[in-house]
């Protein structure tokens, strides 16, 4: 099945293979990686009757186009975008038949950042530590798509559940990203004024954001003192504050250890929507309930 799955006709600015990532190896310096909008990735697979662990393609702002080298069924979720098969409009958020030789074109996101393309049987690639995810921090997993490159497709599920289609409900992304944050473990590295800044001042998503972190523009957090933090483990969603004082929210490809204090942690369930916030989106932090 590997030969002759998909050929990249247009790679877009950044399109990677993603699945649910390789959690459990942080102690070896291996980021978890995986789809940034895990909910959209899972939905795309469910629409096709794939297991949620099947690999999808994750686009960035400009979409991508792939030629099917054999007939397949695809589903596009995540950031809404125009979907075309050989130029003809096709459905977003529903199974779409792609005949052999046809090009599935996923256009630029009309809202959000990242669209997910699932295929019958999933994208195939050599798994690394049990995952096919592209990890851009450490270079594990398949390379980002490039024009002319060929990706394999897995065998379609033998028993597709009847009427397996979810309704692909989609809520427009909020005009302002409201992120719950659990303070700590290093909030005491900041003055009370610094913490007030975090919880009351507005930020904006920086264009320097990527799969490693959502970088923010806005007021710096005031530190309670000088000093360097000894390297320590960094969780997903960590709000790390480098010396210049502007918070970075760690996403799936984040480093596993780091030496800047983590003022708080954004719970994982809030990160899907964070990954869909384009540069310029206003951001506010709010204390998370327990």
């Amino acid at each position: 099945m590997r030969a002759g799955g998909l050929q990249t006709a247009r790679a877009g600015v950044l399109t990677t293979v993603q699945d649910l990532g390789r959690a459990g190896y942080a102690h070896l310096g291996v980021p978890r990686s995986g789809a940034l909008d895990a909910g959209a990735h899972r939905l795309a697979n469910r629409l096709l009757g794939n297991p949620e662990t099947a690999a999808t393609l994750e686009t960035t702002l400009t979409g991508c186009a792939v030629r099917a080298l054999r007939p397949t069924v695809a589903a596009v979720t995540g950031a809404p975008c125009p979907v075309r098969v050989d130029g003809r409009p096709a459905a977003w958020g529903q199974p779409v038949h792609v005949p052999a030789g046809a090009v599935l074109d996923v256009g630029a996101a009309t809202h959000g950042v990242r669209s997910y393309l699932a295929f019958d049987g999933g994208v195939d690639a050599d798994p690394v530590l049990g995952s096919r995810a592209t990890d851009l921090l450490s270079g594990l997993g398949p390379a980002p798509l490039r024009e002319g490159g060929v990706l394999g497709l897995g065998a379609p599920p033998a028993h597709r559940p009847a009427g397996c289609c979810d309704a692909a409900a989609w809520t427009a992304p909020p005009r302002e990203l409201l992120l719950p944050v659990v303070l700590g473990p290093r909030h005491d590295w900041f003055t009370s004024g610094g913490l007030r800044t975090l919880l009351t001042c507005g930020y904006r998503v920086s264009a320097a954001s990527n799969r490693i972190g959502l970088r923010l523009e806005g007021p710096a957090l005031e530190r309670a003192g000088e000093g360097e933090l000894a390297s320590e483990g960094m969780p997903l969603g960590a709000v790390q504050v480098p010396p210049e004082g502007r918070p970075v929210i760690f996403l799936a490809d984040h480093p596993t250890t780091g030496g800047y204090p983590v003022v708080g942690v954004v719970p994982a369930e809030a990160l899907d929507v964070a990954a869909q916030a384009p540069p310029g989106t206003p951001v506010r932090f709010t204390p998370a309930g327990a």
Binding site: G24, H27, A230, S231, E232, G233, L236
Partner: peptide, 19 residues
Amino acid sequence: VAEIVPGARTVLLDGFPSA
């Protein structure tokens, strides 16, 4: 727990099934 990540002076235990 999903991850046990030692650091220089710390051990991070991340991903318990519940709070």
